[in-house]
Design a protein around this nucleic acid. Structure first.
Lengths: 201, 201
DNA sequence: TTAGTATATGAATAAGCATTCATGTTATGA
DNA sequence: TCATAACATGAATGCTTATTCATATACTAA
């Protein structure tokens, strides 16, 4: 019943632990959580089946750990690319680009995040709620300074997440083709966010 | 190897067939495709386990059928709510509202659509590609008539799908709370699409 | 009425897979 | 050098579950 993972204490243990994490990311990306067996993971990691259970009490606990890690990773990555001294509109541009670049570099991210909807819906909700909260926090000063329209920030946050998430997924799915189009994608999004899509009547 | 379903020919058969479809939607929504057993479906439908295989050669074939049905259903529903004589911006508003209302009335839709990413990625891709194509077709005349900005329509299509899909999901996930907020959501989205989010420098 | 077809049953089958466990191996601090 | 804890193994276990099948009933056209 204890779902907590066992962090290794030695150099060798840490190596194995990380092999398992990397292998599982690759497997989950290829075949999804349910389509991946523990044997798949241990085989790809090059260790015996039993070794898995030295560190993870269950397949699910590994998944949870991955989601958690990914969540921190993305946040840190995006934050590092945003210069707080810029105007919010330019921060937004940097954030969108950072997200899309992260998605390209980590093509398994959607597999891990979206699959939570089918594994434990509360994990999915928690993930996007946390993301939305950060957005709202960032947008609030901009709203107060009238750098942006006077709109409900939670709705705005989901609009922005929807745009970036779908574009990221699109880019990943036809990888190779669109990967180079990142500039065009960012520019198009920013055009809509600055001037709207439809010409005023 | 034949994955095609067997359409019943009698009144009784049709009833059973539909019971199985309804039951599977409910089960998939509750527990996901992999979490749902064929026994779950037949039990909820009130038929014997073997009956399932009179109509569906496999669990997967049922899923495929559902995704296909849903896809047609959504398109028809949205198309019926759009008045082609309106300007594109107002067509868009009607389309967004129609999608969100459909999502609320069919809370299992995301489960079915997004899960395709983990069942057969090409199904997922086909679904959104088809949706994007319809968007592009609708937007092309507007672009030519300068009713909208001169942007890459495929990117625009994914921006619009991202916004509506994420807002729909958000509304479904905290059902009850946001369900009534549909007007605010539509208005906020339309504000962004008409005037942008950030005030011009 | 009756042959034939569609529909229905649910126990049996067989395969897959997460997890356990009895048995090593390695590394290290004293 | 040796005791001890960490790490590693992979065959065995036991459960779950998709699918099949032998059998039975309902309907329909002639």
């Amino acid at each position: 019943m204890d779902e907590s993972i066992k962090i290794p204490t030695t150099r060798n243990g840490t190596t194995t632990f990380n092999l398992l994490l990397k292998a599982s990311e690759a497997c989950f990306f290829e075949k999804g959580y349910h389509g991946t067996t523990v044997a798949d993971i241990t085989q790809k990691a090059g260790v015996a089946a039993g070794t898995f259970y030295l560190y993870f009490p269950s397949k699910m606990s590994l998944y949870r750990h991955l989601l958690n890690e990914l969540s921190h990773d993305i946040r840190k990555e995006i934050a590092s690319k945003i210069d707080p001294s810029l105007k919010r509109v330019d921060q937004e541009k940097a954030g969108i680009r950072a997200f899309l670049e992260y998605a390209i570099k980590n093509p398994h991210m959607y597999q891990i995040i979206w699959e939570s909807l089918y594994i434990d819906r509360s994990l999915f909700q928690a993930y996007y709620d946390a993301f939305a909260k950060r957005y709202i926090k960032g947008l609030t000063p901009a709203k107060e300074a009238h750098e942006m329209a006077n709109l409900d920030l939670e709705i705005v946050a989901y609009i922005l997440m929807g745009i970036t998430n779908f574009m990221g997924l699109k880019i990943i799915l036809d990888l190779g083709e669109s990967e180079s189009k990142i500039d065009a994608v960012v520019d198009t999004i920013m055009h809509v966010l600055k001037h709207g899509l439809f010409t005023a009547e």
